[in-house]
Amino acid sequence: MKLKQLESLLGTLQQFSNPKIDLEQYPTGPHIASRMLYTAENSFGDVTNKVVADFGCGCGTLGLAASLLDAEYVVGLDIDAQSIEIATANAEDLELEMDFVQCDLRNLGWRGPIVDTVVMNPPFGTRKKGADMDFLCAALKIASQAVYSLHKTTTREHVKRTALRDYNAKSAEVLCELRFDVPQLYKFHKKKEVDVAVDLWRFVPQRIQGKGL
């Protein structure tokens, strides 16, 4: 599938109808989502025929993008039942199979090396400090191949240091810097639309002995 085609399909997805600020629910736009998954597949082969988990899947954009690029199995995890409902409808609209689990990633019980790749647009931790790092910590425990994630550019050094030192990442690389459009979703937003600089990261987890290859 071509990048443009992927982007335009993702543009048809339904987004949060009633976003919850405490969960920092911001939709992942089709521009960023398509580039994230396209890069994961075309530069690294981390999507097609793989098992992909979308952490904090929200309306399912990243997971469905993985599915459109022929991931064999996609599971979306989110704490919010309403988001999962929208994501389910989005999957049906695109005629894609995607599993969902309602859970809190901070205390999730998870077995084994089945998930190859985690993709996520975590809460940036603006409202609740460290939320994005909780996601990253969980992702690096579960992925056996790679984790793709977005974090604010201003936190680059912190993300790198913590991933390598505390979360058992073998490598942590910024693939590119993107502009994340934050539309005026919430009442406290004064400007109509704001751009936030975010980094697209690729993390590689350490292979634990006896865990897969």
């Binding site: 389910t88 969902f100 309602q102 809190d104 205390n107």
Partner: peptide, 8 residues
Amino acid sequence: KGIPNMLL
């Protein structure tokens, strides 16, 4: 509806 609720 096919979705397990694993919230504690």
